[in-house]
Design a protein around this nucleic acid. Sequence first.
DNA 1: CCTGCGGGGTAATACGTAGTACGCTGGTAC
DNA 2: GTACCAGCGTACTACGTATTACCCCGCAGG
Lengths: 318, 318
Amino acid sequence: MSQTTVSLVLSGKGVGRISDATAEAVRRAARDLGYRPNAAARALRSGSAAAVGLVVRDVTHPFFGRTLRGAQRAAREMGHVVVLIDDNYGAGVADGAVEILREGAVDGFLFFATDPPASLRAPGAPPYVLVENEQSRSPFVRLDVETGTDAALAHLHDLGHQEIGYVRSVVGGQTFDRRHARWEAHLRAHGQDPARQVTVFSAFDAESTIAAGRELLTHPRRPTAVLCDDDVLACGLLAAADALGVRVPAEVAVVGFDDLDIARLSHPPLTTVHFDPEALGAAAFELLYARLQGKRPRNRVLPSELVVRGSTVAPGPG
Amino acid sequence: MSQTTVSLVLSGKGVGRISDATAEAVRRAARDLGYRPNAAARALRSGSAAAVGLVVRDVTHPFFGRTLRGAQRAAREMGHVVVLIDDNYGAGVADGAVEILREGAVDGFLFFATDPPASLRAPGAPPYVLVENEQSRSPFVRLDVETGTDAALAHLHDLGHQEIGYVRSVVGGQTFDRRHARWEAHLRAHGQDPARQVTVFSAFDAESTIAAGRELLTHPRRPTAVLCDDDVLACGLLAAADALGVRVPAEVAVVGFDDLDIARLSHPPLTTVHFDPEALGAAAFELLYARLQGKRPRNRVLPSELVVRGSTVAPGPG
DNA sequence: CCTGCGGGGTAATACGTAGTACGCTGGTAC
DNA sequence: GTACCAGCGTACTACGTATTACCCCGCAGG
């Protein structure tokens, strides 16, 4: 039983070259001895670590947590493992970690709403896939947020809302820009000037969201409806409304994005644009995996859907 | 410029053996050529992958997300990298992944409220640290949840609450057991029978939490106060109360655990037991790191603290 | 009897690093 | 003049796997 034989049997590449009896003996011995192939040696020799790096903007945000879960599950199904890098909104903070991983530790990268370091664009660099961050010449997976946003705006319009405020994320991001762009388009299409609508900005921590909500609700030209870049921001608005005694949805209708669990637990439950983050993460890994196989997979755009709950009704009289 | 020289210079172990001029030349050449040491080769030769496996019960839960962040940040500071395995409450689902990683891919493991596979107890297995899951003969880091729980119960007692219901997590966990045990002790100390108190069980998804909340609130012997194993469960209770027209805190006082962001955004803001998940994650990594150095670090217990917000007042008359 | 061939298996090598042991040079002590 | 030492580097090997090239044996065809 040479080392070669063992390698051939355990890797499944020995079919036709190694007799069944020997193969069985090898497998039994491996089991009895508790033998496990060494990952580092295999990575060194084969040139593949069976691991992908995953750079995420904010691990603590439920949306990314679920995306992460989808990606990790898909990776495991293909025998791959996921190395996590939390960027924590720090532009470029993750770049150093990416550099460390670059050679030999992982086979490729997934960037969740984060930008890849410039060095990965160089020829010979490991492949990567962008998630919620479309860029020319880079493969990507993203959500078709436009359809959902248009549905939400149509819903508000049908209810009779003219003035639609906006709670924007201070942290940038293509998906936020897309949502905002559809809002602008909607207003223009109905003869409104987006610049005249009340718009406030917020980070994702509780204080910020509540402060932003208060700012919007106490504005002299308070709108009858508000689009929020995210369910978390929408919940801050709800909390502020509660503190100010502003009734939702009677006095202000609220729409969020993401359909997080909090959208069902909030008071009132949120009307929101639903996505499937697990599918997004899984699709991202699948794209990267195909690339690692040398294929040229097509970019993917996943659907969105409006979910109407209790936070939107027709504007009250006056 | 031999390969050895390069290795010595770049690893910093050449001080005193390699002249400054040569060292500088090596560094310049490395930079100009874009040379990066290969992680797999280094791991193979040195026997250390500079990576730790991290098994987490639920990546999508904000508490674990924050713990994860703390651990990942601490790891990065020591030049280590984190491999994520999401167990998703599936008992043993992660075991296979752990086996894959065992040899050569990671140097040790962190288990976040999950159980290590039995194979890791064997001699020669990589070291691990348990988080929120104390077991004899295994190093661990946990929260001193007892102090915070006692403070919460004392707070309710001071307000005049006698009947204290409980929303329990259906998913088991030591920390939940500890919370529950203090609640039982408190009731007994005041001459009550815990078995007679209204107790309901819930998973962490929105539907479950609301259903459990409804069950508790519609119970014929509805308590005047409720302890919830978690802020998420508390929010479900709030949502149920809202749907049923039960006023919080006037008719029912609510206390949660974890002090998640939603505890500030909820209506009313939650009285809850505060922890520092980032510190928990960082401490866990530090313990594991010390073990990897061959040290015998002491287990750590991190403090908890009651945060009183709007969900607790004295029971109303009748 | 020799040749060719297929089935079954193995020796040897390369992957890129870390570490060990050794070599060379020039100066100093005796 | 020899022995020793410090200061600087360098050949060489091991790490555990995947892969390539090769070897051995028995049998069929000529």
